[in-house]
Structure formats: C-alpha cells, structure tokens
C-alpha cells in the first residue's frame, strides 16, 4: 500500500509536520523547535509554546508537503497527536488537523504521543513483534509491551518524576543550562561514573515502575553538604548521576524483556539520545542476546514522522477518530472520561 499520511505534532515545544508513504517511509519531516526561545526561561513555557505553534504550524505543514513533493489533495489521512502533552500546545495541532481533515474530506487519526515514539522504529527497521518499548523523555518514562503496529500495553511507568525531568531539575540545581540532559551528558563524558554512589530505585523485581524523585533529592542532599561544584567534581557528579539514570532505565527494560520473553527491545524518546544510556543499553542487551533498536536522534526527539507512521497503521486498521476528539495531558486519560472534562492544562 502506498497510502500518504500527513502527520502533525505539537505536544510540547516542537512544531512538526511530516508526510509518510506506506507507513514506512518519511518523504519529509519538518521540525521547528522553540528550544532557543525557552532556553532563557530554563524550560518550556506553556503560553509561549502555544503561541509559537500558532505562528508556525501552517508554514511547517506547507514545507512538509513541499519537501515531499505532494499536493494536499493527495493526502489520504491526517494523523495528529492528541495527547499526552500540554493542552494549549496540543490544541493547536489538533485544531489544525481537524480543519485539514474536514476541508479535504479525509479521515482524522488521533495518535498517542508515547505510542508514536515507539512507532518511529518502523521508519528504519522491520518490526519484530512482540517487543518491549521504553519511552523516555522530559515528561514521560513508560514501558510498553508492543504486540502489533497498533497494539500497545502499558506495563510500567514512573511513579513520580520522568527521567528527563530528573536530568532537567539536576541541571538546574547544578547551575547548568536548559535542556539539562544535553548539558549533563556533555560534562559526564569526562567524569567518573563511580565517584558518587547515587541511589537506584529498582523497587524489586515484581514491578516495572520507575521512581526518580529519590535520586533528585539525593543530589540536593549531596549539594547541601558539598556546595558549588565545578571542574572535575562537577563532571564527576554529572557522570555519577547520569549513570544512576542510565542503569535504572536499562535494567528495568531488561527485566521487562525477560518477564515477557521478547527477543527485541526499542528505546525511544528524547532521553534515548543520551550517549551513556545508548552505550550501556547496547552493551547489556548484547550480553543478553536481545536485539536493541534505538531510532536515530532526529526520530527520537519529538517529530511528526512518528505520528504519521502510527497514523498510517491505525488507518489501515480502520482506527480513525471523530472530529470532536479532545486533547488530554496525562498518559492516563481515563480520568473524567465521559464527563467532557479535560485532565490538564
């Protein structure tokens, strides 16, 4: 099948659009990042994010169509992230997608942002179902059992902070710049990962959940005892802290793979760009004889190609959406479902 899907993504601070052919090939993928704008505030500022999305969205979609050499009339479906994410930001992409779907008379396909992160793998590799997928980013840390192109079962999640949040907040108390994960990754390369033993919250083999709040607090405690680190000590802190996160993520994902007896694992999301996580996961899964796939960096950070990939699969299954679907902020949208309320801002 050579179906053409337009993917749209505005869940956080990237305005993105892509054209996907046959669910497997990105003809174009345009990402306009607001990272520089948010940098001066030390994080994503929701109101700025939604305003920027409004300014950028149409130009980004036009560029995606232009890069793909396709006319909008040729698009067979509009896939869009409707959650989880910032409600104000999601609203921009979702409203635009609805307008395109309605105007062109094509189906709308609402897509879960986290499931889409794992679907990014199909743009580069042949799928090996079932696989265990870890989605790890600034706002999310979740493990899925993926049984098919549109079959995702959530089997673990963070009980407090996301891994990316643990990086961002650590960077802030260390006086590093936003985004924190990148700054820590860079400094960690020349640090000693065993200099400080930060806690790893494994919480036993029976759970696939994560907890990073205690790690963050232990760094705060450490800095109260030994304030204002710089030079080698700062590099050691970054390296040791990053090691704790990378090890926890890798070991829990490995535990999930063994528990469900899968031979293939996918790690995706912005934190999957972290060099130590990539190296450690590669080493550990190789030892265990499990195939590890990590999408290339441009497909790990937020993008619309992954939205189009999952959208194409859903369209094939007939899983289209009504034009009145709502955005939702959490990965657990069942709250207040049916009462017409939105669980977030």
């Amino acid at each position: 099948m050579r179906d053409l899907i337009l993917g749209i993504e505005t869940s956080c601070d990237e305005t993105a659009a892509a054209v996907i052919e046959g669910g497997k090939k990105a003809l174009s993928s345009v990402v306009a990042s607001q990272a520089d704008i948010h940098k001066e505030y030390g994080g994503v500022v929701p109101e700025i994010a939604s305003r920027k999305h409004v300014e950028l969205i149409l130009a980004v979609i036009e560029k995606a169509l232009g890069d793909a050499g396709k006319d909008r009339e040729e698009i067979q479906g509009i896939a869009v992230t409707n959650g989880p994410g910032l409600i104000g930001s999601l609203m921009v992409g979702l409203s635009t997608a609805k307008a395109f779907a309605y105007g062109l008379g094509r189906p709308l396909i609402g897509v879960n942002h986290l499931e889409a992160h794992l679907s990014a793998v199909h743009l580069e590799h042949e799928a090996e179902f079932p696989f265990v997928g870890l989605v790890v980013s600034g706002g999310h840390t979740s493990i899925y059992l993926v049984k098919g192109y549109t079959e995702f079962e959530l089997i673990g999640k963070t009980r407090d902070d996301a891994a990316g949040e643990a990086f961002d907040k650590a960077a802030k108390v260390l006086g590093l710049e936003y985004p924190g994960g990148v700054a820590i990754d860079r400094l960690a390369r020349e640090g000693n990962p065993e200099a400080i033993r930060f806690p790893r919250a494994f919480m036993g083999a029976e759970t696939l959940d994560f907890s990073f709040s205690g790690l963050k607090t232990s760094l705060v405690y450490y800095l109260r005892k030994y304030p204002d680190p710089d030079g080698e000590r700062l590099r050691d802190i970054c390296s040791s802290y990053q090691e704790a996160i990378a090890e926890t993520l890798t070991e829990k994902t490995l535990l999930a793979a063994k528990k469900f007896g899968v031979g293939s694992v996918v790690i995706a999301g912005g934190v999957a760009c972290n060099s130590r996580l990539r190296a450690l996961a590669k080493e550990r899964f190789e030892e265990e004889g499990i195939t590890l796939r990590i999408p290339s960096p441009a497909l790990c950070t937020d993008n619309a190609a992954m939205i189009g990939a999952l959208g194409a699969a859903k369209l094939r299954q007939g899983e289209t959406s009504e034009l009145n679907i709502h955005p939702y902020s959490t990965s657990r949208p069942r709250y207040f479902r049916g009462r017409g309320m939105v669980s977030g801002l």
């Binding site: 910032l86 999640k157 407090d160 902070d161 996301a162 902020s329 657990r332 709250y335 669980s343 977030g344």
Partner: peptide, 16 residues
C-alpha cells in the same frame, strides 16, 4: 485511587 505523579511537565493533573 491513583498515586499522583509529578505534574511538572503538564502543569496540572486531575484525579477523581
């Protein structure tokens, strides 16, 4: 019934 998680990323979470 659910255990709240950090709402830093989404600004607000709602629970029944």
């Amino acid at each position: 019934e659910d255990e709240p998680v950090s709402p830093t990323f989404v600004i607000m979470n709602a629970y029944e």
